[in-house]
Amino acid sequence: MTDEVLAEQVGYYRSRAAEYDATAYGDLGPARERIARIVGELAPRGRVLELACGTGLWTEPIARVADSVLAVDAAPEAIAIARERLTGGDVTFEVADIFAFTTGERFDVVFFSAWLSHVPAERFAGFWQRLRGLLADGGRVLFIDEPVDNSAKEAFVGDAIVERTLNDGRTFRIVKWFIDPAALSERLRALGWQCSVERDGTDWVVGTARPA
Rank of each mutant, 00 (worst) to 15 (best):
V109E: 07
A96M: 10
C53V: 12
F99T: 05
D137E: 14
V157C: 01
R106Q: 13
W128E: 06
I179R: 00
W115C: 12
G104V: 12
A136R: 06
C53F: 11
D97C: 08
G126H: 09
D90W: 00
A155W: 07
W128G: 01
L42Y: 10
A121K: 12
A152N: 11
I79P: 03
R164L: 15
V72A: 08
L184F: 09
V162M: 00
L166S: 09
T171K: 14
V162S: 06
S113C: 13
R170F: 07
L166M: 08
E146H: 10
A71Y: 04
D73A: 06
V141L: 08
F107A: 03
R83V: 14
G169F: 09
E77Q: 12
Q129G: 05
R140L: 05
G126K: 03
A96V: 11
T165M: 13
A182V: 15
A75P: 08
A75L: 09
F172G: 02
S151R: 12
A66R: 11
T103D: 08
G46K: 02
D108S: 10
L57I: 15
A80Y: 02
R140E: 13
I98H: 00
T92I: 07
R132Q: 10
C53H: 05
P120K: 00
L57S: 10
G54Q: 10
I62K: 00
V157K: 00
P61V: 14
N150S: 13
R123L: 14
I62S: 02
L142Q: 11
D73Q: 02
V119D: 03
V95E: 14
A78P: 08
P44C: 11
V141F: 09
F99L: 08
S151G: 01
D90Y: 00
T59W: 08
P61T: 15
R64F: 01
L42H: 06
L49A: 09
D97L: 07
A74E: 02
G138N: 10
V39R: 06
E163D: 09
F178Q: 04
L131C: 07
E122Q: 10
E94V: 15
G133C: 06
L135A: 06
I174D: 00
G88D: 14
F93H: 08
I144P: 02
V65P: 01
F124C: 05
A155N: 15
I174A: 04
F127W: 14
L142T: 05
V72I: 14
D97R: 06
D137T: 12
F156L: 04
